[in-house]
Structures are given as C-alpha cells and as structure tokens.
Amino acid sequence: MSNTSENPNPSSSSAKITLKTSDNELFEVEEAVAMKFCTVKQYFEDEKDNDVAARGSSTVIPLPNVHSAVLARLISYCKKLPQSNAVADNHEEEETKKKERKQYGTPGDLVDLISAANYLDFKEGLEFFNQALADHIQNKSVEYVRKFFGIKGDFEPHEEEKYREEYAWAFEGVDED
C-alpha cells in the first residue's frame, strides 16, 4: 500500500489519483484517465485550489454513486479510448464498432455503466454506452424491448392498438424475436 502515498518516479504523465467507490474500494488511476471524468476533474481542481491536494495522490476522491465493478469497467474502457472519436466513415468501420459495443454485455450492465458515466460526466463513455444500448433496441419489436429491459406496458389494450394504428408506418417490417 506504500505505493499510494509515495511515487518514486513522479512525472506529470504518470501522476496517480485515488478514487473511492460506493463499496469502499480504492482505485489508483492515472491522472490522464481520471480527468476524463469531469466530475472527478472538477473535484480535483477544487481541491487543488484549496491547496489540499498539493501532493497529488494523497487525496482520495469519493465516488459514492459508483460501484467498484462498474468503475473497473469504465476505467478499462477509458484506457482503450481511441485518439479520435471520429464517426465511422464506412460500413466496415461501423460494423467493427458495433462488435466492440456488443462486448459490454447485458442491458443491465449497460444501464449501470450509463448511470455511472452520467454521474461521472464522462462524455465519450456516455456516448459509447448509450449507443450500445440503442443497438439492443434496433429493429426489435415492442414486446421484445419490453421483455429485454423489463419495462411494464401500462397502456390499455385499446389505447395501444390506437397508437399502433397511428404510427402504422413505424411498425412495418419489425423482427418479432
């Protein structure tokens, strides 16, 4: 544990910041990674202003809304972030990205990642995971989406029937899986 307090080789690029999750786990992450999370960045800068964080890694930033399992995945995503988040400019690239998005598992996982990314104000992550979740809705029937995300339909049957008719165009050619 001594490596948290004393960095034998301090340089700006390898400066570490310690984050504490809701389940009291401590994560030591590179400053560059931590600064992707705007909430952390804001906290860090405020601390700096207060001159408390003069010695960098000695501060522990609490993240009471983020669980360690989720934070670990966010950090690993963060490290893999491509340099430019340019929009895929051809079909193949889009397919690769889609596959990449698929790796982030079940909708439940994604919802956890999204709410954590939202709390941390982690823009790239939010975009990525939101899109991953959208992939799960793409081309799926209403029944499928409800089941998949555990959404309880609360329209009266005749109401639902009415809306289906009004938007009939949108219900053409949907996968019924």
Binding site: I137, Q138, N139, V142, V145, R146, I151, K152, G153, D154, F155, E160, Y163, R164, Y167, W169, A170, F171, E172, V174
Partner: peptide, 12 residues
C-alpha cells in the same frame, strides 16, 4: 426515426 417512434408505445 421509425425505431425511436416505436418506443412510444412501450409505456406511458
């Protein structure tokens, strides 16, 4: 657009 509109009948 079609997919987004379709979500309107998921729930209120």
């Amino acid at each position: 657009t079609e997919e987004a509109v379709r979500t309107s009948i998921l729930s209120k």
